[in-house]
Amino acid sequence: MKFWLGILIFLFSVGALAKIIVSSDPYPPIIYPKKGMPTGIVTDILPLILGKPASELTYRFSPWKRVLSDAEKGSVDIIGPLLITPERSEFLVFTEPLIRANISLWVRRDNPKVKELIKRNQPIKDFRELGDLTFGQILGYAFGEDFGAFFNKPEVRKVEVVDMGQGVQMLASKRIDVFLAYDPVIEYYIGELKLNKDDFVVLGEANHEVLYVMGISKKSSLVKELPEINRRISDLKLLQGSRK
Rank of each mutant, 00 (worst) to 15 (best):
Y182W: 13
R128S: 11
R66F: 13
D163G: 03
L50R: 00
L239I: 11
K119Y: 05
D177N: 04
L193D: 06
L5C: 10
S89D: 15
K34G: 01
K35I: 07
P33Q: 06
Y212E: 06
I45K: 07
D110M: 08
M214I: 06
N196G: 02
N230I: 11
L211V: 07
M1L: 09
F179M: 00
Y182I: 07
M1E: 12
F94A: 08
S217A: 02
F10C: 11
T43P: 03
L238W: 13
A181P: 03
H208S: 12
N207D: 09
N152Y: 15
L50E: 01
I186Y: 11
L48Y: 02
I78T: 02
L83I: 02
Q240H: 13
S69R: 07
S89L: 15
E192C: 08
G241Y: 11
A149V: 12
F61V: 10
L57H: 11
I21V: 14
D146Y: 08
V213I: 09
K218E: 02
K237L: 07
L203D: 04
L239G: 04
V185N: 05
L130F: 06
L92D: 08
I20R: 02
N111Q: 04
K237P: 12
T134V: 12
S75N: 08
I99N: 11
K153N: 09
R231S: 01
P86V: 11
S217L: 01
R231A: 05
D183E: 10
K218R: 08
V202Q: 12
E209L: 08
V213Y: 05
P29W: 13
